[in-house]
């Protein structure tokens, strides 16, 4: 009888560290145990608990695409005890991971549709997983539009990938920085994400909009989408509540009767309408 201990993490080797923006890093992680690597599966939207041994665990989404095998990636900002502990690790060192947890973006239902990705700041990671997933299965979708904004040029993450997406003929890529955040040679848009979305004015016809970002950005983007004709079941987002267990037991991530760690983190706006906005 060898029941698995949910809280026991997989041991991972940090294969590659990319500095994305001030305080923001991406880790590429490889399973130390090959058998674990072989059976590990996840889907876009899911998250995990990442351990810095000696500091504790932190929740990040899996930022790499499930279509890329053999590793997972996470992108995080150094904000507290655990994230600063992780941030001080070097390539080759060991950290922990448990997951994947949570629900997924319903990509199968989105086949044949246009996808509109709207992301702000460090909320690009959950989106990046989905974007690569969609691009790797490009024939399944029609137009793909990405609107991504950060406070300043420095704060944009995944810079080389942004460039790659920009150069792809099958992606419409719009990058923006908040007014005042631009550099002299900045060629993208200047303006807040919701304003830029309004300007880009993507058609709501047969389109799914995925919105990830800080609460204020989401708050002001939803009405813009509504104005463009998006129905609530065409809009998706992810929630980030305080988490500890990630598996529906520790009791702190619920919004009304729904648990962000089990029923989420992916919610359609239609689903959000049924739970109290006050609790996220």
């Amino acid at each position: 009888m060898s029941e698995k201990n949910t809280y026991l993490p997989y041991l991972m080797t940090i294969e590659k560290i990319t500095k994305e923006a001030p305080g923001v890093k991406t880790f590429r992680l490889k399973f130390q145990d090959e058998a674990e690597a072989a059976t590990f599966e996840f889907q876009a939207g899911q998250f995990g608990e990442y351990s810095a041994f000696g500091e504790g665990e932190s929740t990040f989404c899996i930022a790499s695409s499930p279509t890329r095998n053999g590793y997972i990636e996470c992108t995080f900002r150094d904000t507290g005890r655990v994230t600063s502990g992780l941030s001080s690790l070097e390539e080759g060192s060991t950290m922990g991971f448990r997951g994947p947890y949570g629900n997924v973006f319903p990509m199968d239902e989105w086949k044949g549709k246009n996808l509109l990705f709207i992301a702000g700041g460090i909320a690009l990671p959950p989106m990046r997983c989905l974007i690569w997933n969609a691009l790797d299965l490009r024939e399944n979708f029609r137009d793909i539009t990405i609107v991504y904004g950060a406070r300043t040029v420095k704060d944009l993450v995944y810079k080389s990938e942004l460039k790659e997406w920009e150069e792809r003929p099958d992606v419409r890529m719009v990058t923006t920085v908040d007014p005042g955040g631009e550099t002299p040679d900045w060629k993208g848009e200047v303006g807040f994400v919701p304003t830029v979305v309004e300007k880009v004015a993507p058609s709501a016809e047969n389109t799914i909009a995925i919105v990830c970002g800080p609460p204020v950005m989401i708050k002001f983007t939803f009405p813009v989408l509504e104005k463009l004709g998006f129905r609530d079941d065409q809009i998706y987002t992810t929630l980030e509540n305080r988490m500890k267990c990630g598996v529906g037991k520790c009791g702190r991530c619920n919004v009304g009767k729904l648990y962000v760690c089990k029923d989420g983190p992916v919610f359609s706006k239609e689903e959000l309408n049924l739970i109290p906005a006050e609790e996220y």
Partner: peptide
């Protein structure tokens, strides 16, 4: 409801 914490003693620790 529970919390998860780290008990660290040098190179050893317990979650």
């Amino acid at each position: 409801c529970f919390d998860i914490q780290e008990d660290v003693h040098g190179s050893k620790g317990r979650r």
